Amino acid sequence: MIRTYLPAPTGAAETVADALRMLAAIGIVVAGVGWGPAAGFSLAFVTVGMFLPRLLGVRPGFDIAFGIVVLASVWSSVLDIYISTRWWDLPMHFLTNGLCAALVYIGLVRLGLLADAATLLRPMASTAVMTFALGLSLGVLWEIFEWFGHTYIDEEIFVGYVDSIGDLAWGGIGALLAGLSRPLMEGQSATARPRATSSPLG
């Protein structure tokens, strides 16, 4: 059953993407032991999210980029790079929010919750607008999460009006560009990929 939804890698790029997922899984233990349960939970959350590109059957290059960016983002938090290097927050929001918005968009289309832009009159514009909207929504949810963390978990989590607006703006720009680049990201649908006929895992 596992091979039905997560087939074995078929090329070097998919192997690299799977290696990143393995690295993220190892990071759960490293972060948990070295930086505490909260860091371990953050790595666990990211590790689970890194399987979504594979399940959705996006291009391996997008899968690799997503894995690298989210790992860089979460380790930047664990290592307090966002605090020591304030400007690092903006490029991370630009990249992470853009890739996440594109992934969410592709997932919603695959689930039939959004119309495939290819069926619309202006597919590129439609994709860009929807991905931009999803990116802003994800950005708002993240800022709420940061506020919650600052208020109830750790006051060291930096929040502020200027910071939030900057994060939303850069994240929105990243999402817009990701929407315009969708044809470069989306590969064969996971449901259309050939399924393994037999596997020791079922």
Rank of each mutant, 00 (worst) to 15 (best):
A39I: 06
V29P: 02
F94D: 03
G172H: 02
A102D: 10
A175C: 08
A101V: 05
D63L: 01
M22A: 11
G172E: 09
I173R: 03
G166R: 10
I68C: 07
V48A: 14
Q188N: 12
L55V: 13
W87V: 14
G171M: 01
A31M: 03
G57Y: 02
W35I: 01
L90W: 13
Y105P: 00
F41M: 13
D163T: 12
I81C: 04
A133C: 07
P7A: 01
A190M: 10
D89S: 04
V162C: 00
I81R: 09
A125I: 14
M124I: 12
A12L: 12
D154M: 08
G40H: 10
M50W: 00
P183M: 09
L55H: 02
D116G: 05
P9Y: 06
G67M: 05
E14G: 00
S199H: 05
L90R: 14
A196M: 13
L52A: 14
A128N: 07
Y152R: 11
V162N: 12
G112M: 09
A192F: 05
L176R: 08
D163F: 10
W147A: 13
E14Y: 07
F148I: 15
G27A: 06
L56K: 01
W35T: 06
G36L: 04
V78T: 12
G160V: 04
I83F: 11
D167G: 03
G135C: 02
T4F: 09
T96I: 10
A19C: 04
Y161V: 11
V58L: 03
L23Y: 02
G112Q: 02
M130W: 02
A190I: 08
L103Q: 06
I165C: 13
A24S: 13
S164E: 13
D163R: 07
S198D: 14
L114A: 05
L184T: 05
D154R: 10
W35S: 14
M50T: 10
S181A: 15
G171A: 01
P200R: 15
G187A: 09
F45C: 03
V16R: 03
V109R: 00
A190N: 08
L23K: 09
L79P: 04
H93K: 10
L71I: 13
T15I: 07
S42M: 10
R21A: 09
G49L: 15
Y82P: 02
G11P: 06
G187H: 00
E156F: 12
R54I: 02
V104E: 01
L79S: 08
T4P: 04
Y82K: 06
F45G: 04
G67H: 03
G135I: 03
A24V: 09
I28G: 11
P37Q: 08
E156C: 01
T191I: 11
L201I: 14
V58S: 01
S76E: 04
A17T: 07
L55Q: 05
P194K: 09
G11F: 00
D63Y: 03
T4C: 07
L55F: 13
W75T: 12
L23W: 08
L134T: 04
Q188A: 14
L134C: 06
W142K: 10
